[in-house]
Simulated assay, not measured.
Amino acid sequence: TATGGTALGAPGDAASQTGVDALIETAALAFGPIDAWFANAGVDRGRGLAASDADWDLSWNVNVLAHVHAARRLVPGWIERGGGRFVVTASAAGLLTMLEAPAYSVTKHGAVAFAEWLSATYRHRGVVVQAICPQGVQTRMLDDSGPLKELLSHDVALTVDDLTAAVERALTGDDFLILPHTEVAGYYAARAADTGRWLTGMNKIQQRMETLTEEDEQ
Protein backbone atom coordinates (compact mmCIF):
# COMPACT_ATOMS: atom_id res chain seq x y z
CA THR A 1 0.00 0.00 0.00
CA ALA A 2 1.39 3.42 -0.92
CA THR A 3 1.82 5.81 1.99
CA GLY A 4 2.32 9.54 2.22
CA GLY A 5 0.53 10.18 -1.06
CA THR A 6 3.33 8.61 -3.09
CA ALA A 7 2.76 6.70 -6.31
CA LEU A 8 4.80 4.72 -8.80
CA GLY A 9 4.17 4.39 -12.51
CA ALA A 10 5.34 1.13 -14.02
CA PRO A 11 4.72 -0.48 -17.42
CA GLY A 12 3.02 -3.84 -17.34
CA ASP A 13 1.11 -6.49 -19.24
CA ALA A 14 -2.24 -7.38 -17.68
CA ALA A 15 -2.91 -10.05 -20.30
CA SER A 16 -0.56 -12.68 -18.91
CA GLN A 17 0.31 -14.31 -15.60
CA THR A 18 3.93 -13.24 -16.05
CA GLY A 19 2.90 -9.63 -16.62
CA VAL A 20 0.58 -9.50 -13.61
CA ASP A 21 3.23 -11.15 -11.44
CA ALA A 22 5.71 -8.46 -12.49
CA LEU A 23 3.28 -5.68 -11.58
CA ILE A 24 2.61 -7.20 -8.18
CA GLU A 25 6.31 -7.68 -7.50
CA THR A 26 7.07 -4.09 -8.54
CA ALA A 27 4.38 -2.69 -6.24
CA ALA A 28 5.41 -4.89 -3.32
CA LEU A 29 9.06 -3.94 -3.71
CA ALA A 30 8.20 -0.23 -3.73
CA PHE A 31 5.55 -0.13 -1.00
CA GLY A 32 5.53 -3.42 0.90
CA PRO A 33 2.69 -5.95 1.20
CA ILE A 34 -0.35 -5.18 -0.97
CA ASP A 35 -3.55 -4.62 1.02
CA ALA A 36 -5.86 -3.74 -1.88
CA TRP A 37 -5.78 -4.56 -5.57
CA PHE A 38 -7.66 -2.45 -8.13
CA ALA A 39 -8.01 -4.44 -11.34
CA ASN A 40 -8.57 -1.59 -13.78
CA ALA A 41 -7.21 -2.86 -17.08
CA GLY A 42 -9.86 -3.33 -19.75
CA VAL A 43 -10.26 -3.37 -23.53
CA ASP A 44 -13.15 -3.01 -25.95
CA ARG A 45 -12.40 -4.75 -29.25
CA GLY A 46 -14.49 -5.75 -32.23
CA ARG A 47 -18.04 -5.00 -33.29
CA GLY A 48 -20.86 -7.46 -33.85
CA LEU A 49 -20.21 -10.87 -35.35
CA ALA A 50 -17.31 -9.32 -37.25
CA ALA A 51 -15.27 -9.31 -34.02
CA SER A 52 -12.25 -11.45 -34.81
CA ASP A 53 -10.77 -14.31 -32.83
CA ALA A 54 -7.94 -11.94 -31.91
CA ASP A 55 -10.50 -9.46 -30.53
CA TRP A 56 -12.07 -12.20 -28.43
CA ASP A 57 -8.71 -13.54 -27.23
CA LEU A 58 -7.44 -10.14 -26.11
CA SER A 59 -10.77 -9.30 -24.44
CA TRP A 60 -10.75 -12.58 -22.56
CA ASN A 61 -7.14 -12.25 -21.43
CA VAL A 62 -7.40 -8.63 -20.26
CA ASN A 63 -11.01 -8.39 -19.06
CA VAL A 64 -11.20 -11.75 -17.28
CA LEU A 65 -7.96 -13.66 -16.90
CA ALA A 66 -6.05 -10.64 -15.60
CA HIS A 67 -8.28 -10.84 -12.50
CA VAL A 68 -7.66 -14.55 -12.15
CA HIS A 69 -3.88 -14.05 -12.44
CA ALA A 70 -3.91 -11.37 -9.73
CA ALA A 71 -6.12 -13.36 -7.37
CA ARG A 72 -3.85 -16.40 -7.65
CA ARG A 73 -0.93 -14.32 -6.41
CA LEU A 74 -2.67 -12.16 -3.79
CA VAL A 75 -5.47 -14.11 -2.12
CA PRO A 76 -3.36 -16.84 -0.44
CA GLY A 77 -1.22 -14.17 1.24
CA TRP A 78 -4.28 -12.19 2.32
CA ILE A 79 -5.71 -15.28 3.95
CA GLU A 80 -2.50 -15.77 5.90
CA ARG A 81 -2.41 -12.10 6.95
CA GLY A 82 -6.10 -11.89 7.83
CA GLY A 83 -7.61 -10.06 4.89
CA GLY A 84 -7.37 -7.89 1.80
CA ARG A 85 -9.52 -6.13 -0.77
CA PHE A 86 -9.92 -7.07 -4.44
CA VAL A 87 -11.72 -4.45 -6.55
CA VAL A 88 -12.67 -5.37 -10.11
CA THR A 89 -13.41 -2.59 -12.56
CA ALA A 90 -16.12 -4.26 -14.61
CA SER A 91 -18.95 -2.36 -16.29
CA ALA A 92 -22.71 -2.06 -16.39
CA ALA A 93 -22.23 -4.22 -19.49
CA GLY A 94 -21.27 -7.00 -17.09
CA LEU A 95 -24.71 -6.80 -15.48
CA LEU A 96 -26.73 -5.87 -18.56
CA THR A 97 -25.07 -5.91 -21.99
CA MET A 98 -23.53 -3.49 -24.45
CA LEU A 99 -25.08 -3.50 -27.87
CA GLU A 100 -22.73 -4.06 -30.82
CA ALA A 101 -19.88 -5.12 -28.51
CA PRO A 102 -20.16 -8.89 -27.91
CA ALA A 103 -16.58 -9.52 -26.78
CA TYR A 104 -16.75 -6.65 -24.29
CA SER A 105 -20.18 -7.65 -22.98
CA VAL A 106 -19.37 -11.33 -22.56
CA THR A 107 -16.01 -10.79 -20.90
CA LYS A 108 -17.34 -8.10 -18.55
CA HIS A 109 -20.02 -10.61 -17.51
CA GLY A 110 -17.12 -12.99 -16.91
CA ALA A 111 -15.31 -10.40 -14.78
CA VAL A 112 -18.39 -9.92 -12.60
CA ALA A 113 -18.92 -13.68 -12.38
CA PHE A 114 -15.33 -14.27 -11.26
CA ALA A 115 -15.65 -11.52 -8.65
CA GLU A 116 -18.87 -13.13 -7.39
CA TRP A 117 -17.13 -16.49 -7.11
CA LEU A 118 -14.17 -14.93 -5.31
CA SER A 119 -16.45 -13.22 -2.80
CA ALA A 120 -18.57 -16.31 -2.19
CA THR A 121 -15.45 -18.42 -1.66
CA TYR A 122 -13.26 -16.14 0.50
CA ARG A 123 -15.53 -13.61 2.22
CA HIS A 124 -15.34 -15.51 5.52
CA ARG A 125 -11.54 -15.45 5.27
CA GLY A 126 -11.44 -11.65 5.37
CA VAL A 127 -11.19 -11.04 1.62
CA VAL A 128 -13.48 -8.19 0.52
CA VAL A 129 -14.38 -8.34 -3.17
CA GLN A 130 -16.14 -5.51 -4.98
CA ALA A 131 -17.14 -4.94 -8.60
CA ILE A 132 -17.40 -1.44 -10.09
CA CYS A 133 -20.10 -1.37 -12.76
CA PRO A 134 -20.52 2.11 -14.27
CA GLN A 135 -22.22 3.08 -17.50
CA GLY A 136 -20.64 5.88 -19.53
CA VAL A 137 -17.54 7.58 -18.12
CA GLN A 138 -15.84 10.47 -19.90
CA THR A 139 -12.80 8.63 -21.21
CA ARG A 140 -11.25 7.91 -24.60
CA MET A 141 -13.09 4.55 -24.66
CA LEU A 142 -16.42 6.42 -24.56
CA ASP A 143 -15.26 8.90 -27.20
CA ASP A 144 -14.31 6.02 -29.50
CA SER A 145 -17.56 4.08 -29.02
CA GLY A 146 -19.34 5.55 -32.05
CA PRO A 147 -23.13 5.05 -32.04
CA LEU A 148 -22.87 3.52 -28.57
CA LYS A 149 -21.81 6.84 -27.07
CA GLU A 150 -25.38 8.16 -26.94
CA LEU A 151 -26.65 4.95 -25.34
CA LEU A 152 -23.87 4.87 -22.74
CA SER A 153 -24.52 8.53 -21.91
CA HIS A 154 -28.30 8.11 -21.71
CA ASP A 155 -28.48 8.80 -17.98
CA VAL A 156 -25.28 10.79 -17.61
CA ALA A 157 -21.64 10.32 -18.60
CA LEU A 158 -19.72 10.70 -15.37
CA THR A 159 -16.35 12.36 -15.11
CA VAL A 160 -13.42 10.36 -13.85
CA ASP A 161 -13.55 12.45 -10.65
CA ASP A 162 -17.22 11.51 -10.18
CA LEU A 163 -16.35 7.84 -10.55
CA THR A 164 -13.42 8.16 -8.15
CA ALA A 165 -15.63 9.76 -5.51
CA ALA A 166 -18.21 6.98 -5.83
CA VAL A 167 -15.54 4.32 -5.43
CA GLU A 168 -13.99 6.08 -2.43
CA ARG A 169 -17.38 6.09 -0.70
CA ALA A 170 -17.86 2.40 -1.44
CA LEU A 171 -14.46 1.51 0.02
CA THR A 172 -15.68 2.49 3.48
CA GLY A 173 -17.89 -0.62 3.39
CA ASP A 174 -17.95 -4.01 1.74
CA ASP A 175 -20.96 -3.91 -0.60
CA PHE A 176 -20.20 -6.14 -3.57
CA LEU A 177 -21.63 -3.97 -6.34
CA ILE A 178 -20.37 -0.41 -6.74
CA LEU A 179 -22.88 1.38 -8.99
CA PRO A 180 -21.79 4.98 -9.71
CA HIS A 181 -24.87 5.24 -11.94
CA THR A 182 -27.61 4.41 -9.44
CA GLU A 183 -30.06 3.75 -12.30
CA VAL A 184 -28.19 0.55 -13.12
CA ALA A 185 -29.64 -1.15 -10.04
CA GLY A 186 -33.13 -0.69 -11.46
CA TYR A 187 -32.12 -1.94 -14.91
CA TYR A 188 -30.46 -4.98 -13.34
CA ALA A 189 -33.56 -5.75 -11.28
CA ALA A 190 -35.81 -5.36 -14.34
CA ARG A 191 -33.58 -7.70 -16.34
CA ALA A 192 -33.81 -10.37 -13.65
CA ALA A 193 -37.56 -9.96 -13.12
CA ASP A 194 -38.54 -10.30 -16.79
CA THR A 195 -35.59 -11.05 -19.02
CA GLY A 196 -37.69 -11.46 -22.15
CA ARG A 197 -39.29 -8.04 -21.75
CA TRP A 198 -35.91 -6.48 -21.02
CA LEU A 199 -34.38 -8.05 -24.15
CA THR A 200 -37.28 -6.75 -26.22
CA GLY A 201 -36.53 -3.26 -24.92
CA MET A 202 -32.84 -3.62 -25.72
CA ASN A 203 -33.68 -4.78 -29.23
CA LYS A 204 -35.76 -1.64 -29.75
CA ILE A 205 -32.72 0.41 -28.80
CA GLN A 206 -30.66 -1.63 -31.28
CA GLN A 207 -33.15 -0.80 -34.02
CA ARG A 208 -32.95 2.91 -33.18
CA MET A 209 -29.16 2.78 -33.31
CA GLU A 210 -29.29 1.13 -36.74
CA THR A 211 -31.65 3.83 -37.98
CA LEU A 212 -29.36 6.58 -36.71
CA THR A 213 -26.35 4.92 -38.34
CA GLU A 214 -28.18 4.67 -41.66
CA GLU A 215 -29.17 8.35 -41.47
CA ASP A 216 -25.57 9.38 -40.74
CA GLU A 217 -24.37 7.42 -43.76
CA GLN A 218 -26.85 9.08 -46.14
Rank of each mutant, 00 (worst) to 15 (best):
D175H: 14
A22K: 09
E168T: 15
F176Q: 12
L49Q: 11
K149G: 03
T18L: 10
G46L: 05
P180W: 05
K108F: 07
N203R: 12
D57F: 06
L152C: 04
T3A: 13
G82Q: 08
K149N: 05
G94P: 02
T213S: 04
R85G: 02
P76I: 10
D161Q: 13
G77Y: 01
A103P: 01
G110V: 04
E25Y: 03
M209V: 10
R85Y: 04
V87D: 01
D144E: 15
L49D: 12
G83V: 13
A51F: 03
T18P: 00
V156E: 10
V129P: 04
D174F: 06
D53L: 11
R169T: 15
A111G: 13
L148I: 06
A27K: 03
V20L: 11
V160Y: 01
T107G: 09
H67Y: 13
A41W: 07
Q218A: 14
G5A: 12
A90G: 06
A115K: 00
A103T: 15
A165D: 15
L118T: 08
E210A: 14
G126I: 13
A189E: 15
S16K: 11
V184A: 06
G9L: 11
A185C: 01
A27T: 10
R81D: 12
R45H: 12
Q138F: 02
V167T: 08
L23C: 06
V167A: 09
A30L: 01
D44K: 04
V167D: 04
D144N: 15
F38Y: 14
V167G: 06
L29N: 07
V129F: 05
A193N: 13
L49H: 08
A39N: 15
L58G: 00
T213Y: 00
I205Q: 12
F114S: 03
L49M: 11
I178F: 07
Q207I: 09
V137L: 02
Y188T: 14
A93W: 00
H109E: 10
G48H: 04
M202N: 11
A10G: 00
M98R: 12
R47T: 15
A2E: 12
A14V: 14
F114D: 05
D21L: 12
G201H: 05
T213L: 07
A190L: 07
V43W: 01
A93K: 01
G12V: 09
G9R: 12
G5Q: 13
T159M: 01
